[in-house]
């Protein structure tokens, strides 16, 4: 009568360290904080120099662009961790089975949102990397004399003037920052830092605080860029109109 009990097929004894699922899962969790989370905070702070105007913003771009071994740093600290974190994250998402309709608890919503924001972030980051970093190398490869033009204050401001681009940025920033701050809450449990229900609850408030700070910072920067970009577009069109006349 008894249905065959699915005894765990997997032996948990690690088949050598590299096959240890625990290691890979921890690496996914850790990489979300370092280097990806650290980079995100640094990135949002650096971008907020837009609020100080074109001079400050372009200086920051020059400083980061001129870092020694910048391509190595980009690949090792940014591209590889993000690629690993995304692919492993998509795999985790595929194995879950969201049940919000039956159990619509707050944390269950967060479980769903963590996965949804991760998927949105994945596509947004792809778009964002093309738009900023890769395009520079593309222009360089095409023999453009001034490849840096792709990522100057002026270029960013003009891009933000396009409402579609601007709203993609807003959605992207909100998704990425949410994924990071809620991910930090998950991280604290996954590494056993917040064990009691009370500490987990308080940490949740803290993470929401971080969310509003960082998302606000990012959105404020792009709103500023957009305002400048629209002004620049206006002067361009009016001067063009002047020439016609």
């Amino acid at each position: 009568m008894a249905v065959a009990s699915p005894e765990n097929k997997e032996t948990t004894r690690a088949k050598g360290r590299l096959h240890d699922p625990y290691l890979w899962h921890r690496l996914h969790s850790a990489s979300g904080i370092f280097p990806i989370g650290f980079f995100l905070i640094q990135h949002l702070i650096a971008n907020s120099y837009a609020l100080r105007g074109a001079g400050a913003y372009n200086t920051v771009i020059r400083v980061y662009g001129g870092l020694p071994f910048v391509a190595v740093l980009e690949v090792v600290l940014i591209y590889i961790p993000i690629l690993y974190h995304s692919i492993y994250g998509i795999w985790i998402t595929a194995y879950g089975q969201s049940n919000l309709t039956r159990y619509s608890y707050g944390r269950n919503w967060m479980y769903f949102m963590q996965r949804a924001s991760g998927i949105i972030a994945f596509f947004y980051i792809g778009y964002h990397i093309w738009n900023t970093s890769l395009q520079k190398y593309f222009l360089l490869w095409q023999g453009n004399p001034n490849p840096e033009q792709a990522i100057s204050y002026h270029a960013m401001a003009l891009q933000m003037a396009d409402p579609l681009h601007f709203w993609i940025q807003v959605v992207g920033i909100v998704a990425v920052v949410f994924h990071f701050t809620n991910g930090f809450w998950n991280f604290c449990i996954r590494w056993g830092l917040t064990i009691s229900a009370r500490s987990q609850r308080l940490n949740q408030y803290g993470c929401w605080g971080l969310f509003f700070i960082f998302a606000g910072m990012g959105i404020w920067s792009i709103v500023h860029l957009r305002a400048d970009g629209m002004r620049a577009e206006l002067t361009q069109t009016s001067s063009a109109a002047g020439m016609v006349r």
């Binding site: 948990t12 985790i92 608890y105 269950n108």
Partner: peptide
């Protein structure tokens, strides 16, 4: 050791439905 594999504690996704159910 028994809960350190792919089927162990690392598979928790922190949805926290368990404690409510």
């Amino acid at each position: 050791e028994a809960i350190s594999g792919a089927d162990g504690v690392t598979s928790c996704g922190n949805a926290q439905n368990c404690v409510k159910a």
